[in-house]
Computed example of a mutant assay.
Amino acid sequence: MPNITFKGNPVTLLGEEVQVGNQAPDFTVLANDLSEKSLKDYQGKKLISVVPSLDTGVCDAQTRRFNEEASNLDNVTVLTVSMDLPFAQKRWCGANGIENVVTLSDHRDGSFGQAYGVLIQELRLLARAVFVVDENNKVTYVEYVSEATNHPDYDAALNAVK
């Protein structure tokens, strides 16, 4: 597993590390309307942006950046996954004019966090990461951000999805 810190302190990630070339693991998360969603609900290329909580500065900036860039991406669905409650995700998106990314909540059972190796045991939050999955559900890009309070490499992720 990658070594990840949260505010400088090492944390334990649960689940399996995902690597380029792997089949993207399936998961069950909740949409803002509380409906269950899984990988098969999103056809085509996917950029999966993983954040600890939308209500923090870096997560807010990351989600805004991918929301902005999403309109320039052809046939790509941008998913943002966090442990935030679906109601909070919906409120945050509405308050911030976020319309080009799909926010999904992993709060119920940590299915996504376990499947992608980003569930922080000590905090029950997701570690910051970005995954790109092609139309055949093969992983083509992975970034586990080594310090959870840092930004991901936006340009590398966006180049990988184009």
Score class of each variant (00 low, 15 high):
residue 93 C to N: 14
residue 155 D to H: 04
residue 124 R to L: 07
residue 147 E to A: 12
residue 17 E to V: 07
residue 100 N to W: 05
residue 68 E to K: 14
residue 137 N to Q: 03
residue 97 G to R: 08
residue 155 D to C: 00
residue 58 V to N: 06
residue 99 E to S: 15
residue 107 H to D: 12
residue 8 G to I: 08
residue 77 T to K: 11
residue 14 L to Q: 15
residue 70 A to P: 08
residue 151 H to A: 15
residue 85 L to K: 12
residue 71 S to V: 10
residue 144 Y to A: 12
residue 154 Y to Q: 03
residue 14 L to V: 13
residue 96 N to R: 10
residue 42 Y to N: 06
residue 113 G to N: 06
residue 83 M to K: 14
residue 37 K to G: 02
residue 102 V to F: 11
residue 62 Q to L: 08
residue 6 F to M: 14
residue 37 K to V: 03
residue 67 N to H: 03
residue 43 Q to V: 11
residue 136 N to R: 13
residue 130 V to D: 13
residue 123 L to Q: 11
residue 22 N to G: 00
residue 162 K to H: 11
residue 135 E to K: 15
residue 1 M to Q: 09
residue 120 I to W: 04
residue 3 N to P: 09
residue 147 E to W: 05
residue 57 G to D: 10
residue 137 N to L: 00
residue 143 E to I: 00
residue 107 H to Q: 15
residue 110 G to M: 01
residue 138 K to W: 00
residue 159 N to S: 13
residue 89 Q to F: 01
residue 135 E to L: 01
residue 152 P to V: 13
residue 30 L to Y: 07
residue 62 Q to S: 13
residue 132 V to D: 10
residue 56 T to S: 14
residue 137 N to F: 06
residue 106 D to V: 12
residue 133 V to N: 01
residue 74 D to K: 14
residue 129 A to E: 04
residue 115 A to P: 06
residue 103 T to A: 15
residue 126 L to F: 03
residue 160 A to F: 01
residue 29 V to N: 02
residue 140 T to M: 01
residue 132 V to S: 04
residue 101 V to S: 13
residue 13 L to F: 10
residue 141 Y to V: 00
residue 126 L to S: 08
residue 27 F to L: 00
residue 75 N to S: 14
residue 10 P to S: 05
residue 136 N to I: 03
residue 139 V to F: 00
residue 161 V to Y: 02
residue 100 N to I: 07
residue 15 G to L: 07
residue 141 Y to P: 08
